[in-house]
Design a protein around this nucleic acid. Sequence first.
DNA 1: CACGAAGCAGACCATGTGGTCTGTTTGGTA
DNA 2: TACCAAACAGACCACATGGTCTGCTTCGTG
Lengths: 207, 207
Amino acid sequence: MPRDGTATRNRILDSAERLVLERGFGATSVDAVIAASKSSKGAFFHHFASKDDLGRALVARYAASDIEHLERYMAAAEAESEDPARQVVAFVRLFEEDADDIVAAQPSCLYVSFVNERQLDPEGTAEPIVEAIVAWRVRLLEKMRAAAERSPVPEGLDLEALADHVFVTFEGAFILARSLQDGAQMRRQLRLVRMLLEQTFGVGPGA
Amino acid sequence: MPRDGTATRNRILDSAERLVLERGFGATSVDAVIAASKSSKGAFFHHFASKDDLGRALVARYAASDIEHLERYMAAAEAESEDPARQVVAFVRLFEEDADDIVAAQPSCLYVSFVNERQLDPEGTAEPIVEAIVAWRVRLLEKMRAAAERSPVPEGLDLEALADHVFVTFEGAFILARSLQDGAQMRRQLRLVRMLLEQTFGVGPGA
DNA sequence: CACGAAGCAGACCATGTGGTCTGTTTGGTA
DNA sequence: TACCAAACAGACCACATGGTCTGCTTCGTG
């Protein structure tokens, strides 16, 4: 294996991700990506078969990082307490504490760009996104089910919907924050959901 | 005033809205809009100065319709009960009941397309969106404040965030539903939020 | 009924776009 | 050191796209 081209490939992916998060995938030209990553047409199409191929790679990488993030924070939450209810709350609190940094680092969520502009084949791009969503759902749902067994929850509460609601809040808060151009909205929404979860599972703010 | 061109203009707006909701604004070409609306280049640029101008008109119309929707359902909710807490719950329930129709009629929210692909001048497009968001916030916040005065809510609850959370859930649920290609997710998320609100403001499901 | 402007049709244009091709450099390997 | 494939650089191309222009049709009005 001659020279390692992974560095260039990652530079392209990084630049593309920044641009897509700001302007959307359709509005991001490959020329713009090339300019931002200080590479060339030759380099780009050496590493990616097409623009759509870049899109697939972007989503795959983003989703993988997302799942990794989920597992890391879930592990940290599990280290805080044995009680599944407190674990769920701690999990959301960890994201809440990082909310400002998250929004500052990325003004939007990559999923939105690709889910909304479905000019890519659904098979190739939707897959990693669904995988990530399901990962969040499964991980949170097992905690919530365990928590619901220990302390009673409201009659007819849809735990699966509640598990998904964390993802829903993330996506919605991104849009709210971006619309109002106020990054603090993410933190506020996450704090709210954390409190609703504390209330639902009967977990007080105390240690 | 010669012949009335409003009909053509509306046909263009309707077709454009459908296309943008499905493929995003950037991925929607004016040629596609012209074809879908069975009009012509001449007609298009007679009614709209540019593609961006169409975008502004689309957002303005959508936001106005959104606010109208808000007021209509809020009035219906107010007709159901005198209790502000029950009014809030009823308001969400009305959207919950229409959830399947809403998702079927529009696979996404127009706001997302324009907030995410900010290739339009922020001044022209962001304005109506912010206006609509604030309208929802103000309308729900007054109800929630009144409800919070009657029955105690959890300490430190951010009522403004809770008011915005309805909008956040809408936007997030659109993305969830579209990602999973399951329109039922909207209804489930709205039902969940309704139950969380019932719980928060101490309103039982009974009449 | 003339006429003028709004409404509309469609050929046409300039440019930006995704993608190709040829050529050059680089670095591991026999 | 000769060699070769990977890694790039950048000119080039075909085409889609946003936008213009000319001209025709329709209708309210003097």
